[in-house]
């Protein structure tokens, strides 16, 4: 392991939440409302992981009012308080990036 990774590791979450592409998750994200801090959940399906080390991010996709919404979170950000796996995919995804879900709705998007 090179020295940059060693340094990085000290700032990473010791126990990063574990989940996979295709999982339906509930991301607990800390937001600020004026002085107050509260957790705002974002619920959807994980469609990709990107980056490595402390810069690793994941993208969650959900359908809001018939409109696809995707949000990308830094896995190691202290604002990402927790990621809970609500349920796994119905079928095991055969690829790492589930971009093909974007063009589909309803039953076709069922994975």
């Amino acid at each position: 392991m090179n020295i940059v990774q060693t340094v990085e590791k000290k700032h990473m979450k010791a126990e990063a939440p574990s989940f996979k592409v295709g999982d339906f998750v509930r991301v607990e994200y800390m937001i600020r409302e004026g002085e107050e801090e509260r957790i705002q959940p974002f619920i959807g399906q994980v469609i990709r992981f990107a980056g490595a080390g402390i810069r690793k991010t994941f993208t969650v996709r959900r359908i809001v009012q018939n409109e696809g919404v995707e949000r990308t979170f830094p896995l190691h950000s202290p604002r990402v308080v927790n990621v809970k796996v609500e349920r796994g995919p119905n079928r095991r995804p055969r690829r790492a990036k589930l971009y093909f879900l974007r063009g589909r709705g309803g039953k076709a998007a069922a994975l």
């Binding site: 090179n2 020295i3 940059v4 402390i54 810069r55 830094p74 190691h76 202290p78 604002r79």
Partner: peptide, 20 residues
């Protein structure tokens, strides 16, 4: 040695250069 980043408590990112 290279660059990386870390998070402050409020979630803001600090870009840093690692020097040996």
């Amino acid at each position: 040695k290279g660059m990386t980043q870390f998070f402050r408590e409020d979630g803001t990112v600090v870009p840093v250069t690692v020097l040996e």
